[in-house]
Design a protein around this nucleic acid. Structure first.
Length: 330
DNA sequence: GAAGAGGATGAGA
DNA sequence: TCTCATCCTCTTC
């Protein structure tokens, strides 16, 4: 395994209580080539070989991937008929973070394949998000850092105890005594098995997920910082003591699809075309930023329209409701 | 009915 | 002066 995101998704998929057919796995694998190009990004992160994952491993994510998570996952792909049959999808996702919608066409009714890919991306991001959340919760409970590389022997023991307890594994703390997180991360699955024949592979697989999650978190943080930096370097903002402009604020939201993809997203990033999905939410966010509790979409849209004259924002050639276009795309 | 367009006016930096 | 908030009317979807 060379892709941390894949590791997380694989872990979740394999651990699901839902019976996954070959087709479903194929479906979940397909979009990996689209937006999960993290291969080669960091060497030696994770080494779970799917082909060799034992049956014990397949069930060990039952608790990591909670019922809540599964229900959210199943809600996240309402347009994929294939996925629906697999996951008994419900309508109206409670959350549907959009990882990157820039590949989508302007039309809200793209091709079936595009819709499917988009849905699957949402499923993947949902799974990863939930796994990361669970790890974060565990870290708070155990008072350890999410990155196994930073664990001291005491942290390692805490993590072992927690994992053993959570997945009802036989106690293996003693055989990993005095090892730091770095030591643990350097060990192969075989070495785990040698130390703990009963649950070494499971522990190794879990550690792999933690490693992947830590790597992804780091990557997200860097990406966020980079995006924010780019944004702030291009424009005045609250961070520089200058009042932020509405168009800057909108770009800020658009640059953080993980956080705001539900309320505003790119339809065509290259052309600067974006869609406000939840007008009330975007207006609320803008009101919060400007300390204007009475802000609403009517007022916000009036401000957007002021940009028409200034050549900052315009309506796209094919005008659609709640769709605008930056005259000078990012 | 919600969204879009645009005029008018005032507040605040 | 500039940007934005606010209110308004009318039109379009």
């Amino acid at each position: 395994m060379s892709n941390p995101a894949r590791s997380l998704v694989d872990g979740a998929v394999y651990g699901s209580r839902i019976a996954m057919s070959d087709d479903s796995l194929t479906l979940l694998e397909r979009p990996r080539s689209l937006g999960w190009d993290m291969d080669n990004a960091k060497a030696n992160v994770g080494s779970v070989d799917r082909g060799s994952i034992p049956s014990l491993y397949l069930s060990c994510f039952d608790m990591l991937l909670t019922e809540d998570c599964l229900s959210k996952v199943s809600e996240a792909a309402p347009t994929s008929s294939a996925s629906m049959s697999l996951l008994e999808l419900r309508e109206e996702p409670e959350q549907c973070p959009i990882i990157d919608s820039q590949e989508q066409g302007l039309s809200p009714c793209g091709t079936e394949e595009q819709e499917e890919d988009r849905s699957l991306e949402q499923v993947q991001s949902m799974v990863v998000g939930e796994v990361l959340k669970d790890i974060e919760t565990a870290c708070k409970l155990l008072n350890i850092t999410p990155d196994p590389f930073e664990w001291n022997p005491s942290h390692v023991q805490k993590w072992l105890l927690w994992t053993e307890h959570l997945y009802r594994l036989p106690h293996a703390g003693k055989v990993f005594q005095d090892l730091t997180g770095k030591d643990l991360c350097a060990m192969s699955e075989e070495e785990f098995r040698q130390r703990s024949p009963h649950c070494g592979d499971t522990l190794h697989a879990h550690l792999d997920i933690w490693k992947s999650a830590a790597w992804m978190k780091e990557r997200c943080t860097l990406a966020d910082a980079k995006a924010t930096g780019e944004l702030w370097s291009e424009a005045d903002s609250s961070s520089s003591g200058q009042p932020i402009h509405l168009w800057q604020f909108l770009r800020e939201l658009l640059l953080k699809p993980h956080n705001y993809g539900r309320c505003i997203r790119w339809l065509n990033k290259e052309k600067g075309i974006f869609k406000i999905e939840d007008s009330a939410h975007v207006a609320r966010l803008w009101g919060l930023r400007k300390n204007r509790p009475a802000m609403n979409y009517d007022k916000l849209s009036r401000s957007i329209r002021q940009y028409y004259k200034k050549g900052i924002i315009r309506k796209p050639d094919v005008s659609q409701r709640l769709v605008y276009q930056f005259v000078h795309p990012v």
